[in-house]
Design a protein around this nucleic acid. Structure first.
Lengths: 185, 185
DNA sequence: GTCTATAACGAGATAGAC
DNA sequence: GTCTATCTCGTTATAGAC
């Protein structure tokens, strides 16, 4: 399943075959279908849930490392940019590729992806709340923080450059701080 | 080719078959291969270039309609949100799905997608420059404006809601105006 | 539970009559 | 230039020996 998650992340859902997952993981095809009787869609959804939890843990850890929300967001974008570059620009968002293909086509995959984004948004939301933002501002900003980061991730992949993500961090920190109550007026 | 562009937009590259394009367009398979001897990848790249030009024209028109860059960006997000909802949440970014699948796998598709984003970024950049931003700020913000919009598009598709895009417009306008020289200090 | 073999089908691509 | 028929290969999924 870790293999499936990895392949889904780099190739998307449609381009990843069951045989490819079997080869990459060392499991046999029969064994995979034994544990995932729902076939490719069930395995895909499970793999996305796995990526979801994994990324959520990393996100929570990085957010906790910096008290200020803006600085925490910058740290996240730096981490993502570094990992992306290290992977040869193939390890982008763990669920975006599968999500985009699945909209209106593969409900199981789409649902799992939607829930992943919701969970990550909740983490950012809480961080923003602790930073002193109002309930409404925090809720709205959490959405934009994720969307901007996600879009920047794709831009980095296409440009083979860390710049879009780092720029996103800078802009998001500025945007968040513009909503924060000032300490010294 | 318009059919190919449409299918690539809603399903991505890998999930779209040549036979499906033939059926959807009314052309026969032999005819398609006659005009696109490079096969699926050539047709796909051409379709992305088509979507690129089409979207660039719409973007330029909407940007020109409002003198203030922030208001222009809000108008763009509104337009995108309306079109997306009207399409039943399937007509997202014309190239993102194919772009994500193609990174490091299908150079022809990846290149066409990268050039599309570059062209759109140039349009936003010029608008920001006319709005009085410095060369550097305009360049950096143009990237983030596109990335945020793009990320919000996917969020709207998954949530079946226009809110993420409208929120993105609000935040981007605020961010841009924070970089604009003030008229009345 | 694990593996091999294969069924049933669709993919991209091509040949050749018209 | 257009169409039909087909080739070859890979896909998801299953059957059944072990």
């Amino acid at each position: 399943m870790r293999s499936a998650a990895r392949l889904l992340r780099t190739q998307g859902y449609e381009a990843t075959g069951m045989k490819e997952i079997a080869r990459h993981s060392g499991a046999t095809l029969g064994s995979i279908y034994h544990f995932f009787p729902g076939g490719k869609q069930e395995l895909g959804a499970e793999a996305i849930r796995h990526s979801d939890s994994e990324f959520a843990a990393a996100l929570a850890a990085t957010l906790e490392r910096h008290p200020d929300p803006g600085q925490a967001i910058i740290a996240c974008t730096r981490l993502l940019a570094a990992e992306l570059a290290e992977s040869g620009w193939v390890c982008g968002c763990p669920v975006s590729a599968a999500a985009l293909e699945s909209v209106g086509r593969t409900p199981g995959i789409e649902g799992a992806a939607a829930r992943a984004f919701e969970q990550w948004r909740e983490l950012v939301y809480r961080k923003l709340r602790h930073g002193g933002l109002s309930e409404r501002n925090a809720r709205e900003l959490a959405v934009t923080v994720l969307n901007t980061t996600n879009g920047a991730l794709l831009a980095c992949q296409l440009a083979r450059s860390q710049t879009p993500l780092l720029t996103a961090g800078k802009h998001l920190a500025r945007l968040v701080s513009s909503y924060q109550p000032k300490e010294k007026p």
